[in-house]
């Protein structure tokens, strides 16, 4: 019951901040920008006059799955930044302003407080990512050719795990410090370092959460979920549970001191 109350309170706060409107819109913009600019690239080059007279330059149209991957990599950079920005103050800010104490003196368990906040942010962000990628799929279908809807949906299902992982990192960092800016910095640094390590040792770390994205092009083309992708998904789910558990434990210790 109390879990549902906190969840509803978080959703209401998101509504008061107009987040239910602007976050989905921004994700749709991020996702459709790349298919559109790729499609209109010849016209854009022509109108800016980038090519000298007589130069012929054939721009091959990229295959449809590659264009869809452009949208995903856009979410991977700008989208992750937006996610980190909207989650950076969710616990840290409340502890700073004293709202967290107001809530936690009532018989509310720490685990309910953390997981309800997590669930509220996950619902908002998942809705946005889903809407954005559907819009991207629509444009790819319209402008570049066929991509199977089922392949797209299974890729989105795995990609969404990575996004939940990002939210969990941010929530975990939220319990460590009371400064929202520092939460943002720590979250982005952890993701950057993870990406770096995964790409350097890519042959060793095929199950790392950040490697999910590199498995997606194959899934989009063939529709077959490889063993590495299954394992990466499993590792991601385990890390999410571990991060949430860690967040609850840290918060407990911080509040007593």
């Amino acid at each position: 019951m109390q879990w549902l109350t906190i969840y509803k309170k978080e959703c209401l706060e998101s509504a008061r901040n107009y987040r239910w409107v602007w976050v989905p819109l921004v994700f749709i913009l991020f996702c459709i920008m790349d298919p559109l600019t790729t499609y209109y690239l010849p016209q854009i080059l022509e109108s800016t006059g980038g090519l000298p007279d007589g130069a012929t330059f054939n721009i091959p149209t990229p295959p449809a799955p590659n264009v869809f991957m452009m949208s995903i990599s856009q979410i991977n950079t700008l989208g992750v930044l937006v996610i980190a920005l909207i989650t950076m103050g969710t616990i840290a800010g409340e502890r700073k302003s004293g709202v967290a104490e107001l809530i936690l003196v009532k018989p509310v368990s720490y685990s309910a407080y953390v997981t309800a906040k997590w669930a509220a942010h996950v619902s908002l962000v998942l809705l946005s990512v889903f809407v954005g990628l559907i819009a991207s799929w629509y444009y790819v279908q319209l402008l570049f050719g066929d991509v199977s809807f089922i392949h797209v949906m299974s890729s989105v299902a795995f990609y969404v795990l990575y996004i939940i992982f990002v939210i969990s990192i941010s929530l975990f960092m939220n319990t460590w410090t009371k400064i929202p800016g520092l939460v943002l910095f720590l979250t982005i640094s952890v993701i950057l370092v993870l990406n770096l390590i995964t790409s350097i040792f890519s042959h060793l770390l095929e199950w790392s959460p950040t490697s999910i994205v590199s498995h997606l092009p194959a899934l989009l083309r063939s529709g077959e979920v490889g063993q590495n992708l299954w394992m990466a998904g499993l590792i991601t789910i385990l890390s999410i549970i571990f991060l949430l558990f860690g967040a609850i434990q840290t918060l407990k210790r911080r509040e007593i001191v």
């Binding site: 107009y18 819109l25 913009l29 459709i32 016209q43």
Partner: peptide, 27 residues
């Protein structure tokens, strides 16, 4: 001419940008 030919493709992009702007102004 270009905009006329491609209106159906570009319109959603423009509409989303306008809606985003209006929401921000209302807020």
């Amino acid at each position: 001419e270009f905009i006329n030919d491609n209106l159906a493709i570009i319109a959603p992009l423009l509409i989303i940008q306008v809606v985003l702007m209006i929401t921000a102004l209302v807020s």
